[in-house]
Computed example of a mutant assay.
Amino acid sequence: MTTIRILSIDDDKFIRELIDKTLRSELKGFEIHQAENGKKAQQLLQNHSFDLVLCDWEMPEMTGIELLKWVRKQETLKAQPFVLITSLDQKEHVVEAGKAGVSDYLSKPFSPKQLIDKVMKQLIKSGRVSREEAMSLMRKDRIAAAGGAELLAGGGAPRAAAPARRSKGKGLLNWDQQRCPVAIREINREEALLTLKTPKGFPSLGGQVQLLLAAGTDEAPVRISVPALVYSLQLAEKTAECDTAHLRIQLQPESAEAAAQLAKVLLLVG
């Protein structure tokens, strides 16, 4: 397997160096290139190929979202895996990134493990490495050897766990060739709060999913599959092994007819 090339973009040199050190210490055979802003990254992207772009949102001269929009307009870069890294994790920012064509979204603060997980997920998804090759690339014995990369995790207090709510029904959630039952805690025409339990991992923040809903009777069922965007994801427990998460998704019916069908299902769900 040839060398994997990653472009890391951030106006903070300290953060760039920490990301570089984390990737080099935990993964084998990686070549990390750096750019201090979107303009410099443009030049590199025009003259070199990269297997993955890791880009901060808030930068001078050209922001990460502006660079992403430019990348998606380039014929040779339309399929470029592009991960935005930012503290701008409000709903409107996640939605904007999704509409601009972001591949994935990593919120600050984040841990070295979360960074590695995002990188490997995109490399596997793009076909750059297989799952077997991904395992061989990981240096399991050096997960804690990044030396200072823990600063990427920040010092903020963890958010409180989402309060328990009585389920309003059940549905199915599809993403990345996975299908998993979900409990619907809250739902309206614009968004839904779901609880998902799976040992196979969760949808990514800013990722696209499909929510399958059904209501009515066996004789007169009403079903709909609604595209949606994940704009909030919270683990039910503060452990790396947690297999349950609470997701908030923005529902995105593709037509007026689909929106009317969704309204009908919601009326039946109550």
Rank of each mutant, 00 (worst) to 15 (best):
101 G>P: 11
133 E>G: 02
250 Q>V: 12
200 K>Q: 12
208 Q>N: 10
207 G>W: 10
196 L>N: 09
248 R>I: 05
196 L>D: 07
219 E>V: 03
117 D>R: 09
195 T>E: 15
267 L>R: 09
64 G>P: 04
242 C>N: 14
234 Q>C: 05
126 S>L: 04
153 A>R: 06
195 T>S: 14
162 A>H: 13
214 A>I: 01
28 K>H: 05
11 D>H: 12
34 Q>H: 11
77 L>T: 00
237 E>I: 06
259 A>Y: 04
30 F>V: 15
78 K>A: 12
246 H>I: 07
244 T>E: 14
156 G>K: 15
122 Q>A: 11
214 A>S: 13
172 L>R: 14
267 L>G: 07
152 L>E: 08
242 C>L: 03
128 R>H: 10
140 K>I: 13
117 D>N: 15
136 S>C: 06
200 K>V: 04
247 L>Q: 07
169 G>K: 03
152 L>M: 15
184 I>L: 01
63 T>A: 04
212 L>K: 09
20 D>W: 02
31 E>D: 13
233 L>Q: 09
110 F>M: 10
164 A>P: 01
186 E>Y: 03
211 L>P: 08
13 K>P: 00
166 R>E: 14
134 A>G: 11
99 K>C: 06
184 I>W: 05
182 V>T: 06
252 Q>H: 06
44 L>R: 13
142 R>D: 11
123 L>Y: 11
180 C>N: 13
19 I>P: 00
198 T>E: 04
137 L>F: 13
231 Y>W: 15
243 D>Y: 02
85 I>V: 15
120 M>D: 01
58 E>C: 10
35 A>L: 05
224 I>K: 04
265 V>H: 03
8 S>V: 15
177 Q>L: 14
245 A>E: 05
102 V>Y: 08
100 A>E: 10
76 T>Y: 06
191 E>M: 00
188 N>G: 05
128 R>E: 09
